[in-house]
Design a protein around this nucleic acid. Structure first.
Lengths: 238, 238
DNA sequence: CGTAAATTTGAATGGATTCAAACGTGGTGG
DNA sequence: CCACCACGTTTGAATCCATTCAAATTTACG
């Protein structure tokens, strides 16, 4: 119901071209032969979401999963009392909504941070490919495991220690994502929700780390020039 | 190297008997025919660990995973600075060390809380059964997903809000595990490490909840008679 | 029964939160 | 083009909750 006729959907960027995909070796179909992919990609769409755009919402079930091609996605989960928390961040190559494979409703709401490009892959494609390619099953397991690793990281690194330690660990993590050593400047509210601290506390910690030379901000509003040694020292100074 | 000759290992309780297993419908082999299991169980051991016993340790790689038959296991992860945190608890039917399927080293240290009985399943058994039974693959995915759910729960419910809220949520969770409405009285240190609060804070919060009638303690040192309505109200009183 | 370990309780400290206000910035409309 | 508003960020100050250190108490166990 979300999907309109192709040309009227502002998010639609085109049919996917898995065979020539620039990040193919990083995604789910890494181990599949090109011949198999041609059949699949007729139903795989390439979508672009703007900042704050919702890829899917908690409780929906669409029988679709998404591969992140570009940008950063936050997975948000709500507490019964209305408070909500960012559970983890998804980067290029990660999968959003993997629980759809099991027929389950989405467990989180997935929101684009900045501009995000994703591939929308129906579960039916996975199921069809799965039959003949055990490698895909293995890839799925790898993805599940790395989601689990990230979840554990969120708990151990981002939810333990003082506010400054947590922010330092987050910056170390983010700065290691891209290859150019820069990373988007997250909203203070998102930082707080991810680290389990108040927005103001996140702002204070960021200001303090910048003042101490832990990082700088580039023209495009990105963070750069991280002093990883300094940040690492702060991150472990319990 | 940990495994001694069968009869000299004090943990060894016998060969597994999957076909007649009392919790078979709750474990990994739920969907497999009995005929297949007979071949497998010759290498599946039934082990019993005492309180504090280590099923495996972080960094080891044994090509073995474990099914929890009885008791509670805590998965512990250490921070670089030496501090350690309980990442999540495993209950009857859960799998410990599922990452071994991917050939990875164990990501946590698994410690028995109270007496714990587990089945020790070599990965080779999984791989052999996997070939002919897609249902097992599906079961594995289900397990991975539920581990992920539990990890998210640890973050959202156990690592958010005031100390009292967290303890109330933990008690609600624990009291829902067994069918008799009782649960083991966790060590205050474990509660603290699981909820990200100090041991003393955990003790104070438990005392306060007991004083308010949130639960009582039975003869066996277990907790019982939970006032789930009261606990739920406390858990959501942000 | 006696020692070690865990739990509980107390009091002081400190860090994070909260409430408020000031500041900067981007966008809209006059 | 500028005024103005909305929104996010930053900063300040008071409060509160959790931590920390310490000691008392209970429990577990040889």
């Amino acid at each position: 119901m979300k999907r309109k006729a192709v040309c009227t959907d502002p998010k639609w960027a085109g049919r996917a071209d898995c065979v020539h995909c620039a990040i193919r070796q990083r995604v789910l179909f890494a181990d599949l032969p090109a011949s198999e992919l041609n059949d699949a990609l007729i139903v795989i769409d390439d979508l672009v979401y703007g900042p704050g755009g919702a890829i899917y919402r908690s409780g929906e079930s669409e029988a679709v999963l998404y591969t992140v091609r570009r940008g950063l996605i936050k997975l948000v989960r709500s507490l019964p009392d209305g408070e909500q928390r960012v559970v983890r961040l998804l980067k290029t190559g990660d999968i959003a909504g993997i629980e759809a494979i099991l027929g389950a409703a989405y467990k989180h709401t997935a929101i684009a941070i900045g501009e995000v490009e994703v591939c929308r892959i129906p579960i039916s494609v996975i199921e069809r490919l799965e039959l003949h390619h055990p490698a895909l099953v293995h890839q799925l397991m790898v993805r599940w495991q790395s989601a689990l690793d990230e979840a554990d990281r969120a708990l151990v690194e981002f939810s333990t220690g003082s506010a400054e330690e947590r922010v330092a660990r987050l910056l170390l993590h983010l700065s290691a994502l891209g290859r150019d050593g820069s990373c988007p400047d997250l909203a203070r509210q998102d930082i707080g929700s991810l680290l389990g601290i108040a927005t103001e506390t996140a702002s204070r910690a960021m200001a303090e780390l910048r003042r101490r030379g832990g990082f700088q901000e580039s023209a495009g509003g990105n963070l750069c020039n991280f002093d990883r040694i300094l940040l690492a020292r702060i991150a472990e100074s319990s």
